[in-house]
């Protein structure tokens, strides 16, 4: 039992952020019309590519003097994450552009 309190106390800041972000996430998209479900899903998907920052940090401080499995996998992680981010945002923009065009 005490361990749970220790865990909470150690990570209280992160736990605060997570708890509040969950409500924020729910609140922010709660009234979305079904027309926008697909673009919203695809846009949110692009945001989940934020893992790219982890990839940059990882490869940034890796030993680049020799080719190692770690380095290759790290580079792969960046490429994958970039695909997610760039592809996601571009595809979302393409979809939304169509909605725009039709309004005129």
């Amino acid at each position: 039992m005490e361990q749970i309190f220790v865990f909470f106390f150690t990570y209280r800041e992160a736990i605060f952020i997570i708890a509040l972000s969950v409500f924020l996430g729910i609140e922010v998209i709660s009234n979305v019309p079904s027309v926008l479900h697909t673009p919203l899903m695809s846009g949110a998907n692009a945001i989940s590519g934020v893992i790219i920052i982890g990839g940059i940090i990882l490869v940034g401080h890796a030993d680049a003097s020799k080719v190692s499995l770690e380095l290759i996998l790290g580079i792969l992680a960046i490429i994958f994450a970039t695909l997610n981010v760039v592809g996601g945002f571009v595809v979302t923009d393409r979809m939304l552009e169509m909605f725009k065009k039709k309004k005129k």
């Binding site: 952020i17 969950v22 479900h37 989940s48 934020v50 893992i51 920052i53």
Partner: peptide, 25 residues
């Protein structure tokens, strides 16, 4: 989770936003 590893707030918040939004959808 990766945001936790790096104590990176942008990753934690971005990820959890998508997690919550995805769950609601």
């Amino acid at each position: 989770m990766a945001g936790f590893i790096y104590s990176n707030q942008a990753m934690i918040l971005g990820g959890i936003l998508v997690g919550a939004a995805g769950t609601i959808l």
